[in-house]
Design a protein around this nucleic acid. Structure first.
Lengths: 330, 330
DNA sequence: GACTTCCATGCAACCGGTTGCATGTCAAGT
DNA sequence: ACTTGACATGCAACCGGTTGCATGGAAGTC
């Protein structure tokens, strides 16, 4: 049988130390209110009994549980783990714990999780939320909320601007002498995809470069691989892919067709999730997901402390990370 | 200013419905004890007021918070996200929430997290714990614990037996004619590392193959890359790396030294986290991390429900997934 | 020496639920 | 018609802390 750890309570410590319960409580929360000797005596008794304050009881009376929630659409998407990690680290610095929720890209599940978390966290970070603006607003009325990659007036938000990095990518290719490039697009209903395609077209037209779009349908390795024939058919000498996974597929497809990268063809990914761990190292647009996670939690903790809500709109610019899949045009 | 959401309490609902607090409580927890009409009336009142039971208060009196903790050494390691995802899904099926902890591979941090979680979760899953057996045993005395990839008698554990897959890897290499191979080892305090090294040595000696060990210190791309000189110095024609990240680093290092894979050298990873998305596709040992996450949480919830601790040792076998980084020895 | 001031500590109410037991009611049993 | 029991509901204690206010004693003031 499980040993039911009957926790040591504040009363037991109080008895052992010969003081009132309130004094024990103060010894832990505001020792300056007590005489040093009393504190010492209480601490000794607590130590001897192995007393640990009950988090739940404390939360009940103070209303502060020292937890924040983080909800993401898909943990398995490599974009999120660094974000989660950074959020965790930032929370930890203030002795907060993280509740993690994964919605499987499902708004209903997301709503359910928010509700379930609401009672036990002081605030919430929603990353790439799939909820409607109205639902988000409704939640924001109930507890402090910070958004990542959702732009809603009046709710503090952290936005990753992939446009800036994509622009740099095009400029980089232009400098290398490429005049005709391909954008291997991602899911047509993706906001990021639109953002990236728009940025590429704008940058290219300014530099007098021709851009063609080849759809990859899904953001995946196989889609990228299947797109290779179409890419080569355009006669382009370089490509920017919707994300790193797609780029990696393109890389594989090119290799099978004996097109060497970067010798014969230059390739750039997006999100920089694989760049540093694959070979050849992929030139990619940074994602800043680490900063996003850190900043979002930091913003949230600020709100909790100041009890004030500011209309923050924190934009993170992205940049091109040049590695080994881009070179001068043949 | 933040709207301090003064939660609707059970008393308010009781007043509105003209019943005692206890009846409201029962309407939510054991409606069968009340007459159907009363339940309806209470529910209506609750609905009208927007009442939501206070999770913390409930936890305080029942001792059940409906949370379980999951602690992993490194979220950013692609081995863990699928595990976390599966754990989350399983917890969700029983309406439990997941507390996520990331230890950064640091035992001190792990200890700290366990302590911090202890007060607010009913049980804990420790994945690939870096703690000593003693510390783990100590924690297991305080609350229900399930381990993943740690084999300690008396504590329920889910083990991914990479031994079976590694054995297949060695046999595969033997069939291809390799007689001298290298094991690129991972963190020395990792249980998986020991398991893999042991399995390789056993399989190799049975097949009359020479194995040398080259340490990579950390499970990372850079460690793998730095290990390449040492690997080549052994004169081996093939290597098995502690994990896919390390393997990918080795791949990059080999490529820089103009050693072609699989032409001149065969390489096998472990955990199969990158195999399908990189080029060349990495031959690797499957990981089963999804099952591990699911089973661990399911085991934990069982323990919580039955209040009994069984000495479960759940082993998941792995297999070799042959892709394109292995070929006949020169 | 009497009077204020201040500080350390205790008392008791409170946070928002749950639950064992007591009570009242109504229908069935004899 | 009276007992018995089942059932619905209320009462009050409890979970383990926190905190505003009261109290008593020591130190400071005149």
């Amino acid at each position: 049988m499980i040993k039911r750890t009957k926790g040591v309570t504040i009363s037991q410590v109080a008895d052992a130390a010969g003081v009132a319960r309130s004094s024990v409580s103060r010894a832990f929360t505001r020792p300056d209110m007590l005489s040093p000797e009393t504190v010492t005596r209480i601490m000794k008794a607590a130590e001897a009994l192995g007393y640990v304050p009950n988090h739940t009881a404390r939360a009940l009376s103070t209303g502060r549980h020292g937890n924040v929630g983080l909800i993401v659409p898909d943990i398995a998407n490599p974009f999120f783990p660094p974000l989660i990690q950074a959020a965790q680290l930032e929370a930890d610095r203030s002795d907060f714990c993280i509740f993690l929720g994964n919605t499987e890209e499902n708004p209903t599940q997301e709503d359910k999780l928010v509700g379930r978390f609401a009672g036990q966290v002081e605030g919430l970070v929603l990353a790439s939320s799939r909820l409607s603006d109205e639902r988000i607003r409704a939640h924001a009325n109930l507890l402090p909320l910070v958004l990542i990659n959702r732009d809603i007036d009046g709710i503090p938000r952290v936005l990753i601007d992939s446009g800036s990095g994509v622009r740099e990518a095009v400029e980089h290719l232009a400098r290398l002498g490429h005049r005709r490039i391909v954008y291997v697009s991602g899911p047509s209903n993706s906001w990021s995809n639109k953002q990236r395609r728009t940025a590429i077209k704008a940058a290219a037209s300014k530099l007098d470069i021709v851009v063609e779009t080849v759809p990859a349908v899904l953001a995946s390795y196989n889609s990228g691989r299947n797109a290779v024939s179409a890419i080569l058919a355009t006669g382009a000498t370089a490509a920017v892919a919707f994300d790193d996974l797609t780029a990696q597929g393109v890389l594989a497809g090119l290799s099978e067709k004996r097109v060497s990268v970067p010798g014969d063809f230059s390739l750039i990914g997006c999100d920089d999730v694989l760049g540093a761990v694959t070979y050849p190292a992929l030139t990619s647009v940074s994602n800043r997901s680490t900063e996003a996670g850190r900043v979002a939690v930091s913003l949230l903790l600020d709100m909790l402390q100041s009890r004030a809500i500011r209309d923050v709109r924190y934009v993170l610019e992205t940049h091109l990370v040049v590695r080994n899949t881009t070179a001068a045009a043949r």
